[in-house]
């Protein structure tokens, strides 16, 4: 299971990691009972601070996506797909807000935004159909 963090992104590292883990759960790449790498091993692999991974794991534990077992490690929990989807939608909304405010600042009109969005959705749908 390979995670990839985008240093240039405005989204903090710990959030990116949380999103990727949730996405992996949603797509079945991570199944209930699967073990995640230890906090320290993952920090080393991604070359980020231990505390960043710890924050992500702690948040995910609070959200009941994973379970931290003392002395054993982090394990994926049974999560309702609908709950994860709901969260993914929230996350998307957050990222869209950032994108839209940038677009506005650059002077892109609502019409233009809408047409770009529809164009992308059409491409996206094609990809999904091809899966």
């Amino acid at each position: 299971m390979k995670f990839h963090l985008d240093a240039a992104s405005e989204v903090p590292n710990y959030l990116q990691l949380e999103h990727q883990i949730k996405t992996a759960c949603l797509h079945g790449k991570l199944k209930p009972g699967d073990q995640l790498p230890s906090i320290r091993a993952l920090a080393k692999e991604l070359s980020i601070a231990i505390i960043t991974v710890k924050r992500a794991y702690d948040d995910l534990e609070k959200e009941k996506v994973i379970e931290l077992r003392q002395g054993k490690g982090a394990f994926v929990r049974e999560v309702k797909k609908t709950k994860l989807k709901h969260e993914a939608a929230n996350q998307m909304e957050q990222e869209l807000t950032v994108l839209l405010s940038h677009a506005q600042a650059l002077g892109i009109s609502k019409q233009e935004i809408k047409s770009i969005l529809l164009k992308k959705l059409a491409e996206f749908k094609e990809e999904q159909d091809n899966d």
Binding site: I48, A49, T52
Partner: peptide, 25 residues
């Protein structure tokens, strides 16, 4: 990359000590 906490010192005084994500937020 590696720091979990960062302390900034200036003119003989600690200006702050923060965890990496507090620092970035």
């Amino acid at each position: 990359q590696i720091a979990d906490y960062v302390t900034l010192i200036d003119k003989g005084k600690i200006q702050f000590t923060l965890s990496k994500d507090e620092l970035q937020e």
